[in-house]
Design a protein around this nucleic acid. Structure first.
Length: 368
DNA sequence: CGTTTTTGACCAGCGC
DNA sequence: GCGCTGGTCAAAAACG
């Protein structure tokens, strides 16, 4: 899989129990699918005095090996689906870029931009880059990027196209957050500057408006609001597409979401250095806590749906952010779930201890 | 001192 | 035309 796995603390034991060592270059999750029953092998290599206890353990190990294999297969299936979806998305993106007229780029500007022409003119110019996919026009000001403008200058259909057909590059991200934490900060790896807050009609919780502050010209905007149904869920709505790469993760834990100084402070307490979209509180407490974990999985499910929606719907949302972050979280959760499942299983622990002791004995110079 | 957040005011679209 | 609403601006405050 990806390097991220190797950085997962919960997986850093390198125990070689069923799963291959997680090296630096796992390109596909399928790599996990190869069950290596090293524990079993090591264990069986012992000069056995086949006592009933040993036999029982052996049976147990075999059973776990089977289970391990099943899990690996399930993981393979999930990974395959993930890859399929991703390639599907890539195809759609390429199709969209080769035939821009069919994808109605226009809406990327906030659909409700209501400023006057003078403002919108420079606004669209500024917003243009977000309309294209970064890999094509990283710096904007190309035909595709100006399309919004051209559509608008071509006549009044502009508005309608924008609001109806051209679904703006909007994607939503559902992030689990501590309900007691009132801040509206969603960690996604980018730097955001808050420029407004508003209480909306349908939700008692205020909505915060952010702009990407990493690149001055980046047109991406983000709205964050707690879900009206579940205050522990933060709904982040991204509009537009970053015209710059993702800011490099800070070497240590420090300002990540917020730009500098106060922003970082207000943007959140120390957070995981990765662009994970889990709210810091949850991220800090969740990895081992079952309830949080469940919520995270639900959250992950939401995100998965959103990613799929983004793939199927508006071609090329800020999926560069949203989808990447979502998939990141999905994978992370997957790994955490696996690690938790294993570490919480007493029989697994017992087998692990047995295997380790057997291995130690085997490697011991005094072994006979 | 520079940057960001806060927050009231303003603007424009929409529905009646 | 008027009020409601969402989105944005910009001055003041806050922070490191």
């Amino acid at each position: 899989m990806d390097p991220w796995i190797s950085s997962q603390p919960s997986l850093s034991l390198d125990l070689h129990v069923g799963l291959p060592p997680l090296g630096r270059h796992h390109h596909a999750p399928v790599a996990l699918a190869k069950p290596k029953v090293l524990v079993e092998e090591n264990f069986l290599m012992q000069p056995l005095k086949k006592e009933p206890e040993v036999a029982a353990l052996e049976t147990e190990l075999q059973r776990m090996g089977e289970e391990n294999r099943r899990l690996a297969e399930a993981l393979t299936a999930v990974a395959a689906k993930y890859e399929a979806l991703r390639s599907q998305y890539a195809e759609m993106v390429s199709a969209a870029t080769t035939n821009p007229s069919s994808t109605s780029e226009g809406g990327s500007v906030s659909p409700s931009r209501k400023r006057k022409a003078s403002e919108t003119s420079h606004d669209t110019a500024a917003a243009a880059p977000q309309n294209q996919h970064p890999q094509h026009h990283p710096h904007g000001l190309h035909a595709a990027g100006v399309q919004d403008q051209t559509e608008c200058t071509s006549g009044e259909p502009c508005k309608r196209i924008r609001e109806a057909e051209c679904k703006p590059r909007v994607s939503k991200l559902y992030v689990h957050a501590d309900p007691s934490d009132l801040s509206l900060v969603v960690k996604d790896g980018y730097q955001w500057r808050k420029y407004g807050q508003k209480v909306t009609k349908d939700n008692p919780c205020p909505r915060a408006y952010f702009r990407c502050s990493f690149a001055p010209a980046c047109p991406v905007k983000k709205k964050v609001q707690r879900s009206a149904d579940d205050s522990s869920i933060l709904v982040a709505t991204y509009e537009g597409e970053h015209n710059h790469g993702q800011p490099p993760p800070p070497p240590s834990s420090s300002s990540h979401d917020g730009a500098a100084g106060k922003n970082a402070a207000a943007a959140k307490p120390p957070s995981p250095p990765r662009p994970v979209v889990v709210a810091p509180a949850a991220a800090a407490a969740a990895p081992i806590a079952a309830p949080h974990h469940t919520q995270q999985l639900q959250q992950q499910h939401h995100q998965q749906q959103d990613v799929v929606a983004a793939m199927g719907g508006g071609a090329g949302e800020p999926v560069g952010v949203a989808a990447a972050a979502a998939s990141e979280m999905i994978r992370r959760n997957l790994a955490e779930q696996m690690a938790m499942t294993l570490t919480r299983d007493p029989s697994f622990k017992a087998a692990l201890v047995t295997a380790l002791s057997g291995r130690i004995l085997e490697l011991s110079p005094t072994k006979d």
